[in-house]
């Protein structure tokens, strides 16, 4: 039960983040909104890191440099997400976003890119993506 509440809240916060960024961007601009939320989040995470000390800073050296750059994508993610929310609303934005997210992860799994363990294709995954796309068509018609 506790796990379900954490997971529900986690999802709710992801949506809230997009909505808050959209709201802030109306007042101060999208890049400014992205810069500020990331900066304050960074400071907060850094303070927690100092406190919990679960960090293994040397761990970074054992990771391929490419994988360390993931964080920088956030700039474009926030910009596209915020602009999409202004254009088509939150529901349609998140629906389309999730389709792209699950589909690309699915392709990466099948191809075994980025050193991910290769997965077999399951019919249910195609059906699932098909249903999600149908849902978006219903939403926008």
């Amino acid at each position: 039960m506790k796990g379900i509440i954490f997971a529900l809240l986690g999802g709710a916060f992801i949506t809230l983040q997009g909505v808050a960024n959209s709201r802030i961007s109306q007042d101060i601009g999208t890049w400014q909104a992205a810069t500020i939320t990331q900066l304050t989040g960074f400071i907060m995470a850094f303070l927690i890191l100092l406190f919990v000390r679960d960090g293994r800073g040397q761990g970074f050296k054992q990771v391929k440099p490419l994988y360390l750059t993931g964080g920088s994508f956030a700039a474009i993610i926030i910009f596209t997400n915020v602009t999409a929310i202004h254009e088509v609303g939150v529901t349609l934005t998140i629906s389309a976003l999730l389709i792209a997210q699950l589909s690309l992860t699915f392709i990466i799994d099948i191809k075994g890119w980025f050193g991910v363990a290769k997965q077999k294709i399951r019919l249910s995954q195609f059906i699932g993506i098909g249903m999600m796309i149908t849902g978006v068509v219903i939403l926008r018609s």
Binding site: R56, F73, T80, I85, T93, I94, I99, L104
Partner: peptide, 28 residues
């Protein structure tokens, strides 16, 4: 336009999640 932008965001989220999970395994 909105839908295309959301699709770009989702693809980048997917990549970011995979990259971050690789860092996570080593660095916490």
């Amino acid at each position: 336009l909105g839908i295309v932008l959301a699709l770009i965001a989702g693809s980048l989220v997917s990549l970011q999640n995979i990259f971050n999970s690789k860092v996570n395994e080593r660095a916490g």
